[in-house]
Design a protein around this nucleic acid. Structure first.
Lengths: 341, 341
DNA sequence: CTGAAAGCGCTTACAG
DNA sequence: CTGAAAGCGCTTACAG
């Protein structure tokens, strides 16, 4: 009974064959579920394989295809919806998705890339993350394609990226509030090193501009797409001497924070304050009141990302693509004409 | 320039060596980053490897260690928090987590297990899912340990599982409402084939019982842990002739649905209705008002799951463990004494 | 710095 | 049904 050698080195096919008193070929057949082995022999070999905790030491490529995904804040509503969408796209192609969470700096843990290289994935997808030039080079030298979704940091020119029409989204959100008669409109912006957030701010400014309104610095507040920022900056905005009557919270999480800020100050939404979010995550529908927000087509973005990363191997010229998918405004119950205020 | 043969079969080390006019050994060294190769030769070989999109066809074990996770509703707040916790535990051990979403029946897609076996993971973790006896046997015969977190379906006796103290949680939640003076307390229960949900219901009944209150069938409503169930059953409960003054929503998502139900009927929380949730997901804190709920220690459960699945290989006797981690009630702003009603 | 040779762990026709 | 033999794609001492 060689069952307890959990610590010793694993047996090889050869050793198992010797103990079973058969040839290596026969053991190989059993292992691979081939026919042409008597039931009795098969059973004996199966038992031995189990006892030894047999594991193959060399394997033929192609191994099971994998895709490596690095995601900023996987546990956030945004992260989890993107990841779920990517998983679905990968699953349809029978590709396994290896998921890793990023650090607070939107970068991977120290030796992440070593681990990725050992896995030999067919491709790598980054979500709201960045990667050092060094690491990008290592991927390139192994012919492992890289795609970024909503990249953080300064974008690398030769890495394809997928985003949404953020400028447009910011414009639509702000325009909607202007159309409702609001003239003092606050905004809570995202990290300055993400193109997605600066584009939203830019859209906000453009909308104000085209309506002949000025964008006032005191109405523009920074944050990191967290709920706590929404609460804090929301309270700050609402306590301004000449407070805004509407806030463009450039993420749904901000919007929930603003909801809480309004509640804590005894204001109702949309009666006293109109709020527009961004992303249209599931939580937007569940909020009280349901949130007017900019719909970001995460499912389509994920599908594009997987599609692109799969094709990049054969069509290197795609490396310079930059895909932006359209956003649409979804009007729900958190916005109302200003006279309601 | 053999760069465009994306369709042809990949080159072997041997072929690359021939073209580079060096021996196989030298190419092997370059590939593995060994020293003892001139810069010039190395560069020439690197270039060739790139051109050919060289990929290894056989690899030495141990390959990069993987853990396979199958999760019901990965995109739900519950699923994503569990998955993120498991990822963190796996990451600390430098193990890659392959994530797959389950179907609506809490089972994997048709050939999932084939894919898992090709990946040769060190272990498999199921979250709120079930697996056929056949598939379980196939895993066992390959010595791949299996652990279930909050299992669905009838539990298999020889598969270790991790859960939380659901009966206790149900009891605590109900007890809290009773202590506030409520006597008509509704409950929205989870799928009947999950032990976790029947245990919560059982705890609810026991709490009522110990307070001398009867549990009335019309106050017990079924659901599948979705927001929509909370809304629908919440409305049904609140429109009862003798409506409950408190609802134990046995998931946080239910609770948000109940919030919306109350809102749609013009009732306020906790003034007109007290609500207790279950899980203590992040959304519980973001709700308006912040939700009183039963805290489920997801991080600890995930850590236990990963820990267990790693040890099972060496200590098969652990296969019969059943671990339940303690729950605690977190009182926030959605519950109040009945006189407030 | 380079490569011939031995070796590893496996698979696969094919002869018996 | 079984296994000897050839082969595959790689790695690794070691001699030059």
């Amino acid at each position: 009974m060689p069952a307890e050698d959990g610590s010793r080195s694993r047996a090889t096919l050869h050793e198992v064959a010797a103990q079973a008193d058969v040839s290596v070929s026969t053991v190989s057949k059993v292992l691979n579920g081939r026919s042409g082995v008597s039931d009795e022999t098969r059973a004996r070999i199966e038992a031995l394989l189990q006892d030894h905790r047999y594991q193959q030491r060399t394997a033929k490529r192609p191994a099971a295809p994998l895709i490596d995904v690095l995601c900023y804040e996987v546990d956030s509503p945004f992260g989890s919806e993107v990841v779920a969408s990517i998983e679905q796209s990968a699953r349809q192609r029978r590709i396994g998705m290896v998921l890793t969470g990023a650090t607070e700096q939107s970068t991977p843990y120290e030796h992440w890339l070593d681990d990725v290289l050992r896995r030999q994935p067919v491709g790598v997808v980054l979500i709201a993350c960045k990667l050092s030039a060094d690491d990008r080079q290592r991927l390139r030298s192994r012919n492992i394609p890289l795609v970024m979704v909503d990249p953080a940091g300064t974008p690398a020119p030769d890495v394809p990226s997928i985003g949404s029409a953020d400028w447009n989204g910011g414009y639509q959100a702000t325009r909607h509030l202007i159309d409702l008669g609001h003239t003092r409109i606050g905004i809570i912006t995202g990290p300055t090193d993400m193109m997605a957030s600066t584009a939203r701010l830019s859209g906000y400014r453009a909308a104000l501009d085209s309506a002949g309104l000025s964008s006032e610095p005191e109405l523009i507040r920074p944050g990191h797409f967290h709920h706590a920022d929404g609460l804090e900056q929301g309270r700050a905005l609402l306590q301004l001497p000449d407070r805004p009557t509407a806030i463009f919270a450039s993420s749904d999480l901000y919007a929930l924070g603003v909801y809480e800020a309004a509640r804590s100050l005894g204001m109702t939404i949309p009666g006293d304050l109109s709020v527009v979010g961004y992303d249209d995550l599931r939580i937007a529908q569940w909020a009280g009141p349901p949130l007017t927000t900019v719909h970001v087509p995460l499912v389509a973005m994920a599908e594009q990302a997987v599609h692109l990363v799969m094709r990049l191997g054969d069509e290197p010229e795609l490396a310079f693509s930059r895909i932006d998918i359209d956003t649409t405004l979804v009007v729900r119950a958190s916005t109302a004409p200003i006279r309601a205020s």
